[in-house]
Amino acid sequence: MSAKSSSVGSEVLVELRGIHKTFGTVEVLHGIDLQVHKGNHVVIFGPSGSGKSTVLRSMNLLEEPDSGSVKVLGVEYGPGVKGEKQVPRGKAIELRRNVGMVFQQFNLFPHLSALDNIAVSLRKIKGTSVKDSQERAAIELKKVGLLKWAANFPGQLSGGQQQRVAIARALSMDPKVMLFDEPTSALDPELVGEVLAVMRDLAETGMTMVVVTHEMNFAREVGDLNVFMEAGNIVATGGRDFYDNVTNARAQQFIGSVL
């Protein structure tokens, strides 16, 4: 089954076609097709092990598909769909500079302060000057409400604060698309809200986002395209009204179980 965002006609920023991925001898993705349109917010959900993370990680080639096409901003990156003519492929590092990612475990750099997590990354990746990178870092920290904590190290921040720094760090690279892999799953319940608030603000700015999450209320609010996965396949998709009349029985059951 293929999934397309609602706003047909607008530019497609990320397109997956026929993505197959095998770990060892087990095929965990059985041919995924997914289009992410500019400015759209795609929500991916489904049971554990269904392949949500693997789909997301194919989009920035943290997982290299065995076959299939990963097309980002018009450039082809994947190994290509079997049988199709090969086209020139871009480099993973160039793809990743256009696509930001936020992880379940935050993955801040523990040896750098909140400010330097952003500033040092800017310097090493974009070659920004010390002064400019620090100022940009301050601006990004301010946007997520953590400017005051700039000098703190990750170990001195709560989980919610760490995740907000991680979001700020990804945004400082000026990505065209942001990927979120269960960004609130590792957080204590009382800290989930602050991270979702930052993501909601980001969604309102029109950032193109792909979010793996089980926060169904959040999904309901921002999901322009909602994708239900099971056992390596996309089994149901829908637009903004998806959650009001879920027709797929398995999706319905799953939503009932996580609510």
């Binding site: 920035n60 943290l62 993973a92 590092i93 990743r96 500079r97 696509v99 930001g100 990612m101 992880f103 475990q105 993955n107 801040l108 750099f109 523990p110 040896h111 040092v120 990354s121 090493k124 990746i125 991680a166 760090r169 990804a170 690279m173």
Partner: peptide
């Protein structure tokens, strides 16, 4: 943790940069 490498790569660092700027300083400690 492998998340460090992944975070660096996802930001757009080269593998060499991930090693010198992220992995090595933490491993030295």
């Amino acid at each position: 943790p492998k998340g460090q490498r992944e975070a660096g790569l996802a930001l757009g660092m080269s593998r060499a940069r991930v090693f010198t700027s992220l992995i090595l300083p933490q491993a030295t400690k």
